[in-house]
Write a protein that binds this DNA or RNA. Structure first.
Lengths: 349, 349
DNA sequence: GGAAGCTTTGCACACGTGTGCAAAGCTTGC
DNA sequence: GCAAGCTTTGCACACGTGTGCAAAGCTTCC
């Protein structure tokens, strides 16, 4: 009894100096070596049933949790995956992050989220910060990291996966939706609806996907001998969609409009309706993304869909693809898109 | 030249066995001790200008990044903050995560995101996992952790901050919007609009905020001698809002409805309009949250707003509040809400 | 030039874990 | 009971950093 009491006091003193219970604390209570504790918590390691039980009881009593930081020190890598994104409230981004973070967790990886909303000097500092955590991979959903920082990641055996942006000769994996194909589908659908006075709505953002979609659409429409009216200013918001409607529909008599994102399209729809345009009778509208709100009864937007689960699946595959020494097999994947017909485009003419 | 060549080969061999450049590698190239490298990268530590320069050049040449995991081992704590959330695509949650992750980053903390979408056995396993990363604090946006795991966090000096949920006698900080006050405001607004046949739309979720809002609203309406028609099934989605409209408006001749979230309200609006109800002429509708979509021209939802920046600010304040030994000063904060008048409720009668 | 005071430096240890390996212990078969 | 083979164990080291402290170095003043 007296020995036991001294024993407990000793434990309390150790806890006071450090926040977390250590394997040493557990070993003492269980009456085994610290090594036995380690082996008990290491899958596949050799430990007798008796020792295992005593260790587990002691660990439970003390509330012991393995220190993943210390573990990662040994392997020189954590199971953290850095995820860089901005505009996380936007429906498309939010859904991407939702699905990616869940998929990572299900694969035993943890999501270290870096919000790039205020990364005015580019995302290089964020990536440098992420590297300090010895992440396994970095998924870039927003921003375009320069080659130099990507090369540094690769030198440290950290995969960089760019989502919906190009790599510019750097050794990054890229997973892109077929923006060109989607723009073509949208162009053809408007032409098939009989539209001849056509507009395209982008934003002021130099986001590669948006620029690609806009330019490809304009090109396809020009192949039909039609010159598109272009809106390309403002932020990528619903409000910009409204402004675009006010701006384009005041100076043009349009009968068909392609918006490079659904959010722009929903704003455009509301703006057009406020100006008395009937959709799709007077004006057809197509978006791109297929965010949840596009299916809402007040909108029923016809849009080009990029499959979120394909995207997430490809990101995971890229993360888990083995790196063979210094020679990296890069992934450059273009995901198919498809037209989702709802109510904002006239039937074929 | 020969010595230099041997020196480079030696570096290459070291890099081949480990992924990341270490302080040892830098020290060798700079011709100083490893301790000098450490001091160069430790703010406030003593190091001569010459040594600092040589170390920085060597670090730049080799692409050295401090290992935060090793650093955290010394301090027994990382600057990681665990954030537990589910339904991250929902407008309100997405916005909360967007603002919180940015605020954390601006305060030198990193967001370890755990998606609780598939946490069927509760979020205890997720919190246990987070503890292994020696986080500084845990912010719970979804799920209600039992007292036991909260107590364990506190025993390890890890703050637990519950957002929009109660603590049930556990030592967690809580930050809650004034659901009761908001429900009262909504009830009074409908009554002032002359509504006498009143409904309330919740969901099947046992989410504390939703249950609180619904019950408080029903109570306030009963104080006016009116019995509310209640909908409380399905998930917390736009689609459930539509179902609620179909269900309630078929069996009740309502002139006023309070939906416990904006998303439910937007679905309810679309459902009611599809059934030929004019809003606000035939039927007034109030939501709660003030998500971005509520301001869209197709909806212009009158709603009760909870301020996201107040919420984020309070979470940060709670994280940064000092813990004094074992006696924790808990935060229990109730954030004010306010009515946002738009177009879905009749003027005062 | 020497003494006093200040700055800088490298050594050796800490932090908490996993693991190679020799030693100890256990089990099985003769 | 002993030998052979297998399992388990604890020691000591590794991983990559920060830091206390004694020693070395530098600067200033008389």
């Amino acid at each position: 009894m007296v020995a036991s009491s001294d024993h407990e006091d000793h434990l309390k003193r150790d806890r006071a100096t450090r926040n977390f219970v250590t394997a040493e604390d557990v070993a003492r209570l269980a009456g085994v070596s610290r090594s036995a504790v380690s082996r008990t918590f290491t899958p596949g390691a050799s430990v007798s049933a008796d020792v295992r039980h005593r260790v587990q009881e002691a660990a439970k009593t003390l509330g012991y949790r393995v220190n993943r930081l210390a573990r990662s020190l040994i392997s020189d890598q954590s199971n953290l995956v850095g995820v860089v994104g901005a505009n996380l409230s936007l429906p498309f981004m939010a859904r991407q992050l939702d699905e990616l973070s869940l998929a990572l967790l299900n694969r035993g990886m943890q999501c270290l989220l870096l919000n790039a909303a205020e990364a005015e000097q580019g995302i290089t500092p964020l990536i440098e910060l992420i590297l300090e955590f010895r992440v396994r991979a970095i998924v870039v959903m927003s921003g375009s990291p320069p080659s130099a920082i990507i090369d540094e990641c690769v030198a440290n055996s950290v995969r960089v996966i760019l989502v919906n942006r190009q790599a510019d000769d750097a050794e990054a994996d890229t997973i892109i939706s077929d923006d060109l194909g989607g723009a073509r589908v949208a162009a053809e659908r408007l032409l098939r609806a009989g539209c001849r006075r056509i507009g395209v709505v982008g934003s002021g953002a130099r986001t590669p996907t948006q620029v690609r979609r806009r330019l490809a659409f304009v090109e396809h429409i020009e192949e039909a001998g039609i010159k598109s009216a272009v809106w390309a200013s403002g932020e990528t918001t619903y409000e910009t969609g409204i402004e675009a409607a006010k701006g384009l529909l005041t100076s043009h008599e349009l009968d068909g409009v392609f918006c490079v994102t659904d959010l722009l399209a929903l704003g455009f729809l509301d703006g057009a309706r406020e100006m008395g345009r009937r959709v799709p009778e007077d004006l057809s509208v197509i978006g791109f993304d297929d965010i949840p709100q596009s299916a809402w009864a007040s909108y029923r937007l016809t849009t080009v869909r990029q499959s979120m689960s394909d995207l997430t699946g490809s990101v995971l595959a890229a993360i888990e693809r083995e790196m063979h020494g210094k020679e990296t097999k890069l992934v450059h994947e273009v995901l198919p898109v498809e037209l989702v017909e709802r109510a904002t485009v006239r039937p074929m003419s």
